[in-house]
Nucleic acid binder design. Structure first.
Lengths: 168, 168
DNA sequence: TTGACAATGTTGCACCTGCAATGAATCTTT
DNA sequence: AAAGATTCATTGCAGGTGCAACATTGTCAA
């Protein structure tokens, strides 16, 4: 390695500077890491729910939103539970079939549906919610102090640019 | 409901204590928030890649891992790119069809495949990687100081309990 | 060597998903 | 009021996905 003449500005040698494009590693790529982490959590969550209650994540989201917000339309679920409307519609149909919710036409605007928990649906939620809270608690415990940082980051990512709430 | 006799310990009134189960809100539920945020990011990422390069996220992951690690087997991709093996296998087939990778049998162990980038595959990566880095940079910029917290949390979530690397 | 067992990659299958098209109801404009 | 535009929910369809079964190859103990 020859040295540049004295008057030329000395630059750091490139030899041991790895090209960030050449050395690109998926394992350090933020979008990948976020997707992989979410997939793991969702899978663990879905397994517990399927085994114990026989419901899927889309169904869980519909139930949870109904429990929180009372009678709502499919459109509400699309917006508030982050699901494409056909996904919400199908999840609602399965839940109706299972007897956990009812569908009724809204008499004020008959384009809208009124989805509502049945007594069985409410009973199911009383069993499910403690499990959900426990799951979340385990997750926070595992995260330790990093939980706050995660919350802050998710606030940012879920905030403004709300592209049409599509599916997963 | 009859009142207990007077000598029973008087408990604080429940009236203004909101039951955390009754008031449960999906919007504050960590697993949901993580899944929703990841879905948004992945969607934005997938859109850019599909429009600009015609590849999907599974295909991007295979390409990225090949670029980083050189010739690898499907099993390697399953482990290192967090994809169920049939997903990895199909993504690899599509990439082979498109001329971006080759499949060859490993002569040392003929159960294994050797997936390898073609010159076209390497050329594609040279175009894609700057876009990926830019996407990540925009994400970090948007996160601001929360980016560090997110990294720390993802470290935890992706660390130990590595359940069999399934799909998304 | 042989035979049982494990690892690797592919594929059939049933299911889920997103998108676009549809039908019904409502709103807006003229 | 009539016509066109808009909103809401459902559904047909094409494609992706996970899981289990399978064929092939390798490993290891007897």
């Amino acid at each position: 390695m020859t040295r540049p003449p004295a008057q030329v500005t000395v630059l750091p040698p490139d030899d041991d500077v790895t090209d960030p494009l050449e050395s690109f590693d998926l394992a350090g790529f933020l979008p990948y890491r976020l997707a992989a982490a979410a997939a793991r959590i969702s899978r663990a969550f879905a397994e517990r729910y399927r085994e114990e209650f026989g419901i899927s994540i889309p169904e869980w989201r519909v139930l949870a939103h109904l429990h929180h917000a009372g009678p709502v339309s499919v459109r509400d679920i699309e917006a508030r539970a982050d699901m494409e409307k056909s996904k919400a519609s199908r999840a609602a149909s399965r839940l109706e079939q299972a007897g956990y919710i009812t569908k009724a036409v809204n008499n004020t605007d008959r384009r809208l549906l009124q989805l509502e928990l049945t007594p069985q649906g409410r009973a199911l939620m009383r069993r499910i919610l403690p499990v959900a809270m426990q799951f979340q608690a385990e997750m926070r415990e595992r995260l330790g102090p990093a939980a706050e940082g995660l919350d802050a980051a998710l606030d940012v990512l879920l905030k403004s640019p709300a592209p049409p709430p599509r599916g997963d």
